[in-house]
Measured scan of single mutants.
Amino acid sequence: TYTYKLTDEEASRRAEDEWRNRGYDVRVRNNNGTWEVEVR
């Protein structure tokens, strides 16, 4: 499981799409203004 911490929502969406396209399960959540993109 990888977790990315990003401050930019758009960057988190791009990361989400990119990993999803590669067949990974992705979750995005906002934690106090930081976007966490979790990849498994």
Results as ranks from 00 to 15, higher is better:
T1W: 15
T1A: 11
T1R: 10
T1G: 11
T1P: 09
T1E: 07
Y2D: 04
Y2L: 11
Y2M: 12
Y2T: 11
Y2V: 13
Y2F: 13
Y2I: 13
T3L: 12
T3Y: 11
T3R: 09
T3M: 09
T3S: 07
T3C: 15
Y4D: 03
Y4G: 01
Y4F: 14
Y4V: 07
K5W: 14
K5R: 12
K5S: 12
K5Y: 15
K5V: 14
K5M: 13
L6M: 14
L6D: 04
L6I: 09
L6W: 09
L6F: 15
L6K: 03
T7R: 13
T7A: 14
T7D: 14
T7V: 13
T7N: 13
T7F: 14
D8M: 04
D8N: 12
D8C: 08
D8V: 03
E9Y: 12
E9P: 07
E9N: 04
E9M: 07
E9W: 10
E10T: 09
E10F: 09
E10G: 08
E10M: 11
E10I: 10
E10L: 10
E10V: 10
A11R: 05
A11T: 09
A11D: 08
A11L: 07
A11G: 06
A11V: 05
A11K: 06
A11I: 05
A11Q: 09
A11E: 12
A11H: 07
A11S: 12
A11N: 06
S12P: 01
S12C: 15
S12M: 14
S12G: 09
S12V: 15
R13H: 08
R13C: 05
R13F: 05
R14P: 02
R14N: 08
R14D: 06
R14M: 09
R14S: 07
R14F: 09
R14T: 07
A15L: 15
A15S: 06
A15P: 02
A15N: 04
A15V: 15
A15D: 05
A15Y: 11
A15T: 11
A15E: 07
A15R: 05
E16M: 13
E16W: 10
E16L: 12
E16I: 14
E16N: 04
E16P: 03
E16F: 13
E16H: 08
E16S: 12
E16G: 11
D17N: 14
D17G: 10
D17S: 14
D17W: 14
D17M: 15
E18T: 10
E18L: 15
E18N: 08
E18S: 10
E18G: 06
W19R: 00
W19P: 00
R20P: 00
R20F: 04
R20L: 07
R20S: 05
R20Q: 05
R20M: 06
R20V: 06
R20G: 03
N21T: 10
N21P: 00
N21W: 06
N21L: 13
R22I: 04
R22S: 05
R22C: 08
R22W: 06
R22M: 10
G23L: 01
G23I: 01
G23F: 02
G23E: 01
G23M: 01
G23Y: 02
Y24I: 03
Y24R: 02
Y24K: 02
Y24V: 03
Y24A: 03
Y24F: 12
Y24H: 05
Y24D: 01
D25Y: 10
D25I: 13
D25E: 14
D25K: 09
D25S: 10
D25P: 04
D25M: 11
D25V: 12
V26C: 00
V26H: 01
V26Q: 00
V26S: 01
V26I: 04
V26P: 03
R27D: 08
R27Y: 12
R27I: 15
V28E: 01
V28S: 05
V28A: 04
V28C: 07
R29M: 10
R29T: 14
R29G: 05
R29S: 12
R29C: 08
N30D: 08
N30L: 12
N30W: 14
N30M: 11
N30R: 09
N30I: 10
N30S: 08
N30V: 11
N30H: 13
N30G: 06
N31I: 14
N31R: 10
N31P: 02
N31S: 08
N31V: 14
N32I: 03
N32Q: 08
N32Y: 05
N32D: 09
G33N: 05
G33K: 03
G33L: 02
G33I: 01
G33V: 01
G33S: 03
G33D: 05
G33W: 02
G33Y: 02
G33F: 03
G33P: 01
T34A: 09
T34D: 07
T34I: 15
T34Q: 12
T34M: 12
T34C: 07
T34Y: 13
T34E: 10
T34P: 01
T34N: 08
W35G: 00
W35N: 00
W35M: 02
W35K: 00
W35H: 01
W35D: 01
E36K: 01
E36N: 04
E36R: 03
E36F: 13
E36A: 04
E36Q: 06
E36C: 10
E36M: 09
E36T: 10
V37Y: 02
V37L: 12
V37G: 00
E38L: 10
V39M: 02
V39F: 04
V39Q: 01
V39L: 05
V39A: 02
V39Y: 02
V39T: 01
R40P: 04
R40K: 10
R40T: 12
R40S: 13
R40D: 06
R40Y: 12
